[in-house]
Amino acid sequence: MKTEKMIQLAGVTLMLCVAAAGCARKPQNTTPLSGFRPGSMTDRPGGPITDTATAINSEGIPPSNLDFDKMSADRNTFRDQTVYFDFDKATVRPSEISKLERVASEMKSSYAGKALRIEGHCDERGTEEYNRSLGDKRAASVRETLVRLGMNPTMIQTISMGEEHPAVPGHDEAAWSKNRRGELVLLTPSGGTAQGGTQ
């Protein structure tokens, strides 16, 4: 675990280095684990990411460490911004981008200091654990899009609900197309704002 922490630190260092200086240097004082790419992972995202195109590494943005469970959830505010996906795909369709632009904009203005939970869902046409991973990837895709649109990744939680929580019952494309989705839930910290939400 010690080695892992060191690598996480090295990852953060690398990210900051890339963002601030626009250069890529290899992390120092790290011992790579076997099958592990140094700097590929960090448990402490956030920080001054100014150039998201380079700061988002090849494997995505690591999850936030914030304690989202203590925040109150509002499922209505962004109900109309639910993002829908193509069958067996996790990429955000161009047609859905405008919804996320609105979410990113409102999160920076009306809801500054609040957080967001993205729930990834699937239709029933996949096995359960396959869909749990696919739902996680869908949520991660929505989160990455929001970060590209300027949101702070620290303030965004992702959860995969797999196929277990369909929006619409039924076993046809009409139902399935409504069930392949990313739902956006507005989270309010108990004090009104969360630490780390300064961007």
Binding site: S40, M41, D43, N57, E59, G60, I61, P62, P63, E129, R132, S133, D136, K137, A140, E144, T158, S160
Partner: peptide, 10 residues
Amino acid sequence: MILGKGGNPD
């Protein structure tokens, strides 16, 4: 196991 800690399910 499959973990999302790197940003994608790996």
